[in-house]
Structures are given as C-alpha cells and as structure tokens.
C-alpha cells in the first residue's frame, strides 16, 4: 500500500492513505498515512457505522492539508466490535443452525458430501431471502449450487465438471470456496433470531462447526496431492485461513 503511494506521489499525485500494519508503513515511509487499529479487512472501522467511517475518512483526508512530511499519524479510536468481542467472552455468538454434529469427525467423503449437500439445501432459502431483501450479494462467480457441486465433487475425488471455460481449475476452486463462504454468511445472518456475528465468531463457526468447512479441508488435502503446481499452491495457501489450519 505504502509503495503505491510512493510511486504515485513520485509521479506528481498527492496521496494519503490508511495503514493497517504500522510496522510496514514505518519501513516504507509513504508521504501521508493514518494508522488505524482495526482488523485486517476493515480499514474504515465497522460496517453499518457511518459516523466512525466518516471520522476515519476525515482524519486520512486532512493529512493532505499538512505542510510537510512524511507523516504517520495514529487514529485514536478502536472499532466498537473489538469491545463487543471481549464482552461476549468465551460464550460467543450462537448460531441458530446446528448442523449434523456427528459429521465433524466423519472421514468417509461420500457421507460428508451428502451431509454437505443437505446443509447447503437448508441454507439456500435464507440466502435467497437475504438477496431479495438487500439486492446485494458478495457471491461473485459460483452460485451456491455450482460452488457446492464443484467443491463437493473435487473433495470426493471425482473429475470436476468445469462450467466456467475461462477459469483454470485452481482459480475456480479458490473462487468457489470464497463464494461458498459468502453464501453461508449471508444465509445464516438472514435467519430469524440471528444478529450478525463478529468476524471471529463467524470464522470459528464456519471452519469448526459446518460440513462446508470440512469439505474445504478435504479440497485442500486433494490439492496438495496433485501434480499441478497452481493446485498445490492453492491448497497450501489460498483455501483455509492460516489461523484455521
């Protein structure tokens, strides 16, 4: 991020930036940077909190009025959700959906896949409802059905049927995995009685309590055994977050 600012400023464009990793910004020394203490993925602070977003935005833009630099300024506030996480303690967000808990230890891939398909089918109406309500989804390339078919068949050792001719298998698996996770979030938060979980709560639930998480781990295992280099890289780095492996 800081390097981009350096290149643009060198070409005559005044820049200011938000910094998420202070140590990187200290090394790169871009012209103007506002360090925020928010988690990765949330540079403006918190979703649905326009007042906080505005304060962050203003603090970053006002650096353009500074007479000299380089400047690295700390934003004084933390995201309200960090406090929420602490308050909830170990109990955490409780998901209103409980999926076949016996599947968490299941190693038979066909049984796992059947349970996965049931899970997807159960969530699908809520995803549709959410889409109708908000007219927006983060799903990009693979509908829930297409994502679960591609990932389920690959996990089960089948030759997957590629429906997107312009994507390599490794890219398709990565995008399908992201789309599946987006679908789960949108569906599960649309169910009555379910407030939006924090990012950590959702991640814990998705990776530790759903069959989808198990299927993605099986996809990763197969990727690691493939001869294709991009599939091995996808399996090693691009399917499962580092803190869930």
């Amino acid at each position: 991020m800081g390097a981009l600012a350096h290149y643009l400023e060198s070409e005559g464009i005044p820049t200011t930036q938000i910094s998420l990793i202070r140590e990187h910004t200290e090394t790169i020394r871009p012209p103007r940077a506002l360090w925020v203490s928010f988690e990765l993925g949330r540079p403006l602070g918190a979703p649905g909190n326009p007042a906080l977003q505005r304060r962050v935005l203003m603090a970053a833009l006002q650096l353009l009025d500074a007479p000299e630099g380089p400047l690295l300024v700390d934003f004084p506030e933390e995201a309200p959700e960090d406090a929420l996480d602490d308050d909830r303690g170990l109990e955490g967000w409780s998901c209103p959906v409980s999926f076949a808990p016996e599947m968490r230890q299941e190693t038979d891939l066909e049984r796992l896949r059947s349970a996965f398909n049931r899970e997807v089918a159960e969530l699908l109406p809520w995803y549709d409802l959410n889409l109708e309500r908000h007219d927006r989804t983060a799903v990009v390339e693979f509908s829930p059905d297409a994502a679960s078919e591609l990932l389920g068949s690959f996990a089960a050792g089948e030759q997957p049927v590629m429906t997107k001719a312009d994507l390599s298998l490794s890219t398709a698996l990565r995008l399908a995995a992201q789309d599946l996770k987006s679908f789960y979030f949108e569906a599960v938060t649309a169910r009555p009685g379910s407030a939006a979980p924090s990012s950590g709560e959702f991640s814990r639930w998705f990776w530790q309590e759903t069959t989808a998480g198990r299927i993605l781990k099986a996809v990763k295992e197969r990727c690691l055994k493939e001869t294709d280099k991009s599939l091995r890289k996808t399996g090693a780095l691009l399917l499962i977050p580092l803190d869930q492996t």
Binding site: L40, G41, P47, A138, E186, P197, S199, F202, L238, D243
Partner: peptide, 18 residues
C-alpha cells in the same frame, strides 16, 4: 488471500470502499 475479514464488506461496502 483468505487471511482477512470479508464479512465487514459483505455487510457494508464502505468498510473498504468508502
């Protein structure tokens, strides 16, 4: 990357694109 939160963006695009 899978190593950052995307649920914020799912709820409100302004969180990354204000």
């Amino acid at each position: 990357s899978t190593n950052f939160d995307r649920t914020g963006f799912q709820q409100d695009w302004n969180i990354v694109f204000p």
